[in-house]
Write a protein that binds this DNA or RNA. Structure first.
Lengths: 223, 223
DNA sequence: AAAATAATTTAGTCTCGCCTAAATTAAGAT
DNA sequence: ATCTTAATTTAGGCGAGACTAAATTATTTT
């Protein structure tokens, strides 16, 4: 019988999944994300690599990757998290930037039944309030076609699909500007010098100028 | 600074609160309720009695009682639990008898904000789906005027206020009969011999005969 | 009142998941 | 190539919260 996937382990797997989107995850990065001493992370990774079945692939000094099993477990948690965020916003009037912490705690304790009921009640959504893709019930991650707003140039018109959700301050600013998922925007100009973009958000009065600190955190698709 | 009230501690306090309604709680009863070895319970009780501030009053071989602080902490958890049950039934279509386990896990992790939002969304209910009183936001427990249906006699007409919620089988049976909170019933007859009551539930076709196993778990108020 | 039984407590261990300090390995600069 | 620094791992420990087995204290029976 497989070993128990505790709350801590779920946290590790979730973070590894996210770091893996940009290559193998290093001990240090993981430690920083989890707010845990690097030495402790090493210990846990060794344990996860030796569990039956193994949840990660781990080679000394070379970072970690998830196994199929590890990935399934990670996607399960991520699905919980994103459905919860969607659910809290739609049924309890939470705002965009308030749901994150709550979902971080709840994601570990809800049952499969709870997950299924939420999905049904919400009409089986594919993205959460920040636009992050929600893994399917079968635990596969849909492909994301969107790219950073920062890569857009003059006269392009695009639709916001997703905004990075790890900085509450950024989220609040984005809401002020009206840069939320499904917002339509047109790029007015681009500055070679600082990478600033001047954009017009549909439905807003005036243009706004945004630095790359913001435009690299907003993801868009053509149209 | 007060010591942290962990999830386990919350479970202990909640159970002690419930046992205390019928006197001091014994080590053994607690152990049975928590599914923990009696020896482990002793250890935890000693710890809780010596924490600053103390959460329980504990004298060897004489059972435990909650201190004011312990009671507040218990009522907090109970409020969470009962609001959650109400919330799950009303927003996710859970039935009466399915919510218990889910609420048992969630009660420990939701924030005060979450609690407040639920209370507001539900219109500040005073009883949960089983009819249990919900502690107030100020953490006081309202008085319960109801008494066991078993104590009713011929020709009395009463309203169901509450049903015991710890046996799923009982709950399902009660739902079949229509014996849910706010149901109106009239006592048709009482048997000295076995304590059986014959009752008529308003809106139901025929009379039912119930033994004390059931009638002692259903609580009613006059009218 | 003594013996038998039941309830409770003590003592000693275990696993988890974290920590710090020290040792090691890898990588980058000169 | 060597030296320095940064990243990582090893070793040893700690607190929480559980367990078992054995000892003790209460209670009940005879």
């Amino acid at each position: 019988m497989p070993e128990a996937i505790t709350q801590s382990i779920q946290d590790y797997l979730k973070q590894i999944y996210e770091l893996n989107e940009r290559g193998a995850a290093s001990t240090n990065d993981l430690a920083a994300r989890l707010n845990i001493a690097p030495a402790s992370v090493t210990g846990m990774l060794q344990k996860l690599a030796n569990s039956k079945p193994p949840l990660v692939i781990y080679k000394k000094h070379q970072g970690v990757t998830l196994t199929k099993n590890g990935e399934k477990a990670a996607l399960e948690v991520i699905r919980h998290h994103r459905l919860l965020e969607t659910f809290l916003v739609s049924t309890l009037g939470y705002s965009w930037d308030e749901v994150h912490c709550e979902a971080d705690k709840l994601e570990h304790v809800i049952s499969e039944d709870f997950e299924a009921r939420m999905a049904k009640a919400l009409g089986h959504p594919t993205r959460d309030p920040h636009g992050e893709l929600i893994p399917t019930a079968e635990l596969t991650m849909p492909a994301d076609e969107s790219r950073p707003l920062a890569s857009s140039r003059n006269a392009e018109t695009v639709t916001v699909k997703r905004v990075s959700d790890d900085d509450p301050v950024l989220l609040r600013r984005l809401r002020e500007i009206g840069l939320m998922p499904e917002a339509k925007i047109t790029v007015k100009s681009y500055s070679e010098l600082d990478g600033n973009l001047t954009i017009k958000v549909e439905g807003q009065k005036s243009n706004v100028v945004l630095g790359t600190a913001i435009t690299s955190q907003v993801f868009v698709e053509p149209k």
